[in-house]
Simulated assay, not measured.
Amino acid sequence: MEQLGSKDELRAAVAEARRESKTVGFVPTMGALHEGHLSLVRAARSRADLVVVSIFVNPTQFAPGEDFERYPRRLDEDMALLAAEGAEIVFTPSAETMYEAGATVTVDPGPLGDVLEGAARPGHFRGVATVVAKLLGIVRSDVAFFGEKDFQQLRIVERLARDLDIGTQIVGCPIVRDADGLALSSRNAYLGPAERAAALAIPEALEAAAQAAAWGETDGRAIEAAMREVLDAAGLEVGYAVLVDPATLRPVEAFEAPARALIAAKVGGVRLIDNCEIRPGRVPAHD
Results as ranks from 00 to 15, higher is better:
residue 2 E to N: 11
residue 4 L to Q: 04
residue 5 G to R: 15
residue 6 S to T: 15
residue 6 S to C: 07
residue 7 K to D: 07
residue 7 K to G: 07
residue 14 V to F: 02
residue 15 A to F: 06
residue 15 A to Q: 13
residue 15 A to D: 15
residue 16 E to K: 15
residue 17 A to C: 09
residue 20 E to C: 03
residue 21 S to A: 15
residue 23 T to M: 01
residue 23 T to V: 01
residue 24 V to P: 04
residue 25 G to R: 04
residue 25 G to W: 02
residue 26 F to T: 03
residue 26 F to Y: 13
residue 26 F to V: 03
residue 40 L to W: 00
residue 43 A to Q: 11
residue 47 R to V: 01
residue 47 R to N: 12
residue 50 L to E: 09
residue 52 V to R: 04
residue 53 V to H: 10
residue 54 S to I: 11
residue 55 I to K: 08
residue 64 P to Y: 00
residue 64 P to I: 03
residue 67 D to K: 07
residue 71 Y to Q: 11
residue 72 P to Q: 14
residue 72 P to V: 03
residue 73 R to D: 05
residue 74 R to G: 02
residue 75 L to Y: 07
residue 75 L to F: 12
residue 75 L to M: 10
residue 75 L to T: 03
residue 76 D to A: 15
residue 78 D to S: 12
residue 80 A to G: 06
residue 82 L to R: 02
residue 104 T to S: 14
residue 107 V to L: 11
residue 107 V to I: 13
residue 108 D to I: 11
residue 110 G to A: 13
residue 112 L to M: 02
residue 113 G to R: 05
residue 116 L to D: 07
residue 118 G to D: 08
residue 123 G to M: 03
residue 131 V to D: 03
residue 132 V to L: 10
residue 133 A to L: 09
residue 134 K to R: 14
residue 135 L to D: 10
residue 142 D to L: 04
residue 143 V to N: 03
residue 143 V to K: 07
residue 144 A to W: 04
residue 146 F to C: 04
residue 148 E to P: 01
residue 151 F to Y: 14
residue 151 F to Q: 02
residue 151 F to T: 06
residue 153 Q to P: 09
residue 156 I to C: 00
residue 161 A to C: 14
residue 167 G to Q: 08
residue 171 V to K: 04
residue 171 V to L: 09
residue 172 G to K: 11
residue 172 G to N: 02
residue 175 I to G: 01
residue 178 D to C: 04
residue 179 A to Q: 12
residue 186 S to D: 03
residue 190 Y to D: 05
residue 197 A to E: 15
residue 197 A to D: 11
residue 201 A to R: 01
residue 202 I to E: 00
residue 203 P to Q: 03
residue 204 E to Y: 05
residue 204 E to N: 12
residue 204 E to V: 00
residue 206 L to I: 10
residue 209 A to M: 15
residue 210 A to S: 14
residue 210 A to P: 04
residue 210 A to V: 02
residue 210 A to G: 15
residue 212 A to Y: 08
residue 213 A to E: 00
residue 214 A to H: 06
residue 218 T to H: 11
residue 220 G to F: 13
residue 221 R to L: 13
residue 222 A to P: 01
residue 222 A to D: 08
residue 228 R to T: 09
residue 228 R to V: 08
residue 229 E to C: 09
residue 229 E to A: 15
residue 233 A to G: 09
residue 238 V to H: 07
residue 240 Y to A: 06
residue 242 V to W: 06
residue 245 D to Y: 06
residue 246 P to K: 11
residue 248 T to D: 02
residue 248 T to C: 01
residue 249 L to M: 12
residue 251 P to N: 07
residue 253 E to R: 15
residue 254 A to L: 08
residue 255 F to N: 08
residue 257 A to T: 13
residue 258 P to T: 06
residue 261 A to S: 08
residue 262 L to S: 07
residue 262 L to G: 07
residue 265 A to K: 02
residue 265 A to E: 13
residue 265 A to F: 10
residue 266 K to R: 15
residue 266 K to I: 03
residue 268 G to M: 09
residue 269 G to C: 10
residue 271 R to A: 10
residue 281 G to A: 05
residue 284 P to H: 05
